[in-house]
Design a binder for these strands. Structure first.
Length: 115
DNA sequence: GTTGAGCGTT
């Protein structure tokens, strides 16, 4: 019955535009221990904010972690909070690095927030 | 307790 008018498609464009991550709230976590699992990985970032996305990069060849992952928080503040809390900390015997992400997979739509 | 710089599978 209800057809989507062409004028509403511009709203769809606006929606996809605003649903894009406008904050650099995504973190790159490296130097993780191989014993660190995904549950441990998410568990160490969860108390520092509302995690929107958490990834631990796995290797299909050996079926284990590559030793680094990515965490996306709801806000940039939570991300910076997690950096200050976890960057340079010893986790399971390994000193880990937590820093803002640099999209090498960027489609050209990565807009760093104004600082 | 298996090696150790790096930027990811949707």
């Amino acid at each position: 019955m209800m057809r989507i008018a062409p004028k509403f498609q511009c709203l769809t464009d606006l929606k996809s535009r605003f649903s894009t991550v406008r904050y650099n709230s995504q973190l790159f976590v490296s130097r993780l221990s191989f014993y660190t699992t995904y549950d441990d990985f998410r568990g160490m970032f969860s108390p520092f904010g509302n995690i929107k996305e958490a990834k631990l990069v796995m290797d299909n060849r050996i079926g284990r972690t590559k030793g680094f992952g990515f965490v996306t928080f709801e806000t940039e503040v939570e991300a910076q909070n997690a950096i200050k809390a976890l960057n340079g900390k010893i986790v399971q015997g390994r000193l880990i690095f937590v820093e803002s992400v640099t999209n090498t997979k960027a489609d050209g739509n990565d807009a760093p927030s104004e600082s």
